[in-house]
């Protein structure tokens, strides 16, 4: 029984705690934070409680938006593929895009918008360059799945598959600068990592406009 509805995040929440921790560590207390694809507001709630941030979420799914409001989280119903029209330039200290980049129809357009709206942007994405995925691809000749890309190609919200190297090239191509890179390996954060493109399950980068 294949469901056409794709509402679940690719990684269950508890598995991404480490990702949230990385993002929370990156954020200066008391700042303004915009969380794109905020889900039901889990990260924003933690940022409010732990870092006293003035947060705002953007989310398309109605039920998740309602849950944000119920939690007292500021939220805006918006399709990220429509861009961030109306958000003034540099109106947030941080713009977060966590586990959503690979699901956008037009990632370039949104990341450019993030660089416009935020002083700094934090993007967390699953690394398709991981050696296990590559090996499985080579061995089977098929598009592999993993804990980071859990859905089969024919029914997935993850419509792009990108590597750490892809992301680095993309950021410099759109005139951005990577300020910090943190990786997740075996559910642990790593600030330094040899061969991250092959070993990291997730990349979490803080970028800014040059």
């Amino acid at each position: 029984m294949v469901s056409a509805r794709l509402v679940e995040a690719p990684t269950p929440f508890h598995q991404f705690q480490v990702g949230f921790n990385i993002i929370i560590d990156l954020i200066t207390p008391g700042t303004r934070v915009l969380d794109l694809g905020c889900g039901s507001g889990t990260l924003l709630q933690r940022l409010r409680d732990e870092k006293d941030v003035e947060g705002c979420g953007v989310e398309l799914d109605q039920e998740k938006v309602v849950r944000c409001i119920e939690r007292g989280i500021r939220v805006i119903s918006l399709d990220l593929d429509e861009g961030l029209e109306g958000f003034p330039d540099l109106s947030y200290e941080y713009v977060i895009l966590s586990r959503t980049l690979q699901q956008l129809m037009f990632p370039e357009r949104l990341v450019r918008e993030m660089l416009r709206v935020g002083s700094k942007s934090i993007i967390a994405f699953p690394n398709y360059g991981h050696w296990k995925l590559t090996l499985r691809h080579l061995a089977t000749g098929r598009t592999p799945t993993s804990s980071t890309y859990p859905h089969p190609w024919y029914n997935t919200p993850d419509i792009h598959r990108l590597t750490i190297k892809d992301f680095r090239g993309f950021v410099s191509q759109i005139g951005g600068k990577i300020e910090k890179e943190i990786f997740i390996v075996d559910n642990a954060s790593r600030h330094r990592l040899l061969w991250p493109n092959r070993r990291a399950e997730w990349g979490c980068c803080q970028i800014s406009a040059v």
């Binding site: 109605q62 309602v66 119903s77 958000f87």
Partner: peptide, 21 residues
Amino acid sequence: SLTIMRALQAVKKDVSFVSLD
């Protein structure tokens, strides 16, 4: 509604916007 929301955002006001199906 989006017009009101964007005007509020332009001056950094505390606004939430929910579109309901």
